[in-house]
Nucleic acid binder design. Structure first.
Lengths: 185, 185
DNA sequence: GTCTATAAAGTGATAGAC
DNA sequence: GTCTATCACTTTATAGAC
């Protein structure tokens, strides 16, 4: 590996930022070129097609998101508190979820490879939350349902915040959920 | 009004379908032309720009969605049961919410007029659910938070269903929410 | 491994005949 | 009110020099 390899890394990092800001479909290879500072032929050397660049960038974003979630869910303290810590974690609500938003990105959902990356993220996230709720003493079926509710509240919170233009909308959704969660043993 | 006015109606109906299927940004006026069967100059006669067509189509979709929600929330029966009826209503989970998906559509969020239509929908929807939960006996603050949670569960349910490719994911999120709602007076 | 130049197709929009 | 033809621009991608 030569030192020029970091052109590839800069391309992936730039693509991640642009994808998060405006989606995969609306982001052109040209924009990635301009924002990253690498040359035109250079991009197509490392990533022959937009698909290849997208797989690398979306894969990296998903890895980061899953790592953050597991950090919350496998922290110290009672299992229920760890789930509450996960849903309460401060988020850039107005930006939307970097992974969740991809589910309405046609360029992603029409691409088998990309869609699979998004699917794997949510399957693993739901499994992790379910396992934590099971640790909290819930029976399997209730743990699975409530894990879906928890993740849905976060994803829906992003939608409400973006729709209303107010980050408080997400916090209200989380507050309502946590209040109910604490009252239902 | 001449009978030729229905060219306009066909354009709006076709745009609604295409927007729901693939989003506003990725839908070109050309596609709307082809799918609706009207001529090229005809579209630009009724809607000088894509923005104008989008405002008409998104406005119609929002009106339909709000009407459906109010039908659930203002039905007969106890207030709490009406909220449960709203979140439980069968939905095309894999298609995504026709309005909620617009919050990650850059073509919508970058357009002041379109974004305002989406904002108004969610503000009104949240107000309607909040009012119903107040009728159910909840204090104002709790009613507002729980209304946000309810709408977030539906929106997040769509995200989970699309992400996992399984409509059951949305039903699980709703089941978890309803179970908690019934246990917390 | 990176560059410039360019191709083929699609985009939103306009012109002007009918 | 509707038509065909066309414009200026952007898209993804390739060619071939360095």
């Amino acid at each position: 590996m030569t030192t020029t390899t970091d052109a590839r890394e800069r391309l992936v990092a730039t693509a991640q930022e642009l994808f998060a800001a405006q989606g995969v479909g609306p982001t052109s290879p040209r924009q990635v070129l301009a924002a990253s500072g690498v040359g035109q032929g250079s991009l197509y050397h490392h990533f022959p097609t937009k698909h290849d660049l997208a797989v690398a960038a979306v894969g990296a974003t998903v890895d980061e998101a899953l790592t953050a979630a597991r950090r919350d869910l496998e922290a110290g303290g009672p299992a229920l508190e760890r789930v509450i810590g996960y849903v309460r974690r401060p988020r850039e609500a107005l930006a939307g979820c970097k992974v969740g938003r991809l589910t309405s990105d046609q360029a992603v959902m029409d691409d088998d490879g990309l869609r699979d990356v998004v699917t794997a993220y949510f399957v693993r996230l739901l499994d992790a939350v379910t396992a934590t709720l099971r640790d909290a003493g819930l029976p399997e079926a209730e743990a699975r349902d409530r894990a879906h509710t928890a993740v849905a509240v976060v994803q829906g919170g992003y939608v409400l915040a973006r729709a209303t233009g107010d980050p408080e909308a997400m916090r209200a959704a989380v507050r309502g959920f946590v209040a109910m969660l604490k009252e239902t043993p």
